[in-house]
């Protein structure tokens, strides 16, 4: 049984998945957006946390591959009646589904589910832990920006990416900090010191650099700037700067945009204009934000295909356990 629980994977495997996503991406140009590869397969989107774009993206990905996709949300399901994660998972598995996409506020929930239900599990974001398909789509969008139509087979060697925001609580940052260096990118984590992870701050257990000053990073002219959403719902009672302090120190303002040169801008969404970045930055031709959304569908098609198409999946494709 194979799953996609983490963005930590060997370089070749990551490139293989991104190449597969390139093949899936071709469907965007088609009038008839339907491939029969997962006909007869059933995928359940099990979302215990609110999500519109990730859930719709997985739903579209599954449907374009002809899988039957069912959405189960935490609210209004048996979960709100007190059913455990394990019982919910086993119940869904007992209905004969072929794969489960799970989003949970609890770090590690997808890994537990994977052990329990005997079906491929895709982590669609778990707590402050990981969001591997987000990292894959970020890498995909960035690779396309840099290599254009000749992206197949390529990595991100020497590409300097700065990830800006609440690093410590961001599963997007963590998954990117695992995936991008595997593809050869040099990652700098930027944010208010209380929101930088201690491990990275004192010598980089992740193999990435931490830097509190966005202005210093901008002066280094990075190739890409990834702005994380300021997650107001995760900030209650935390030691965090006020919105005004955040804008002063870490927002991509018009003034910083002008100094940034031609770096590509990424944002996992949904974005707060004026907080993480200015409207001018969001709408500039440097912004790859909508390309990231499109890439999300292609990457998730690649993940679902590599986990579910074959009863004997090969080792080369798809995220390792």
């Amino acid at each position: 049984m194979r799953h996609l629980l983490t963005a930590s994977m060997p370089r070749d495997e990551a490139i293989g998945l991104l190449d597969l996503a390139e093949d899936m991406h071709q469907i965007q140009d088609r009038e008839l957006k339907k491939l029969p590869a997962l006909r007869g397969r059933t995928v359940v989107n099990l979302f215990f946390e609110d999500s519109t774009r990730t859930r719709s993206s997985f739903e579209i990905a599954g449907k374009w591959l002809s899988a039957d996709v069912i959405n189960v949300s935490g609210k209004g399901s048996s979960v709100s009646k007190g059913e455990s994660l394990r019982d919910t998972g086993l119940t869904i598995a007992a209905m004969g589904v072929d794969g489960v996409v799970v989003r949970s506020g609890a770090s590690g929930a997808p890994a537990l589910l994977a052990d329990w239900i005997g079906r491929p599990v895709v982590n669609a974001g778990d707590g402050t832990h990981e969001h591997p398909t987000q990292a894959l789509l970020d890498a995909f969008a960035l690779r396309r920006r840099i290599h254009g139509g000749a992206a197949r087979g390529k990595a991100l060697d020497g590409v300097r990416v700065a990830i800006v925001g609440d690093i410590a609580h961001s599963r997007v940052a963590r998954s990117n900090a695992l995936l991008l260096p595997a593809l050869g990118a040099e990652v700098t984590l930027v944010g208010p010191p209380p929101l930088l992870p201690p491990a990275a701050a004192d010598g980089s257990r992740l193999g990435v650099r931490a830097e509190p000053s966005l202005d210093r990073v901008i002066d280094e002219r990075p190739d890409a700037l990834m702005l994380l959403r300021v997650q107001l719902e995760r900030q209650a009672g935390k030691v965090a700067p006020s919105a005004a302090e955040y804008i002063t120190g870490w927002s991509l303002t018009d003034e910083r945009l002008a100094r940034l040169g031609d770096a590509h801008l990424l944002h996992p969404g949904p974005m707060n204009r004026g907080l993480e970045l200015s409207s001018r930055a969001a709408d500039s031709d440097r912004s790859a934000i909508l390309e990231q959304v499109t890439a999300g569908v292609s990457v998730r098609m690649a993940v679902l295909y590599s986990l579910l198409a074959s009863d004997h999946p090969s080792a080369e494709l798809g995220g390792a356990r």
Partner: peptide, 18 residues
């Protein structure tokens, strides 16, 4: 690749560009 009738029974096949 995506239209083959033996996707289930074989190791995962990587599609090629159309």
């Amino acid at each position: 690749t995506m239209h083959r009738d033996d996707l289930r029974g074989r190791p995962t096949r990587a599609p090629q560009p159309t």
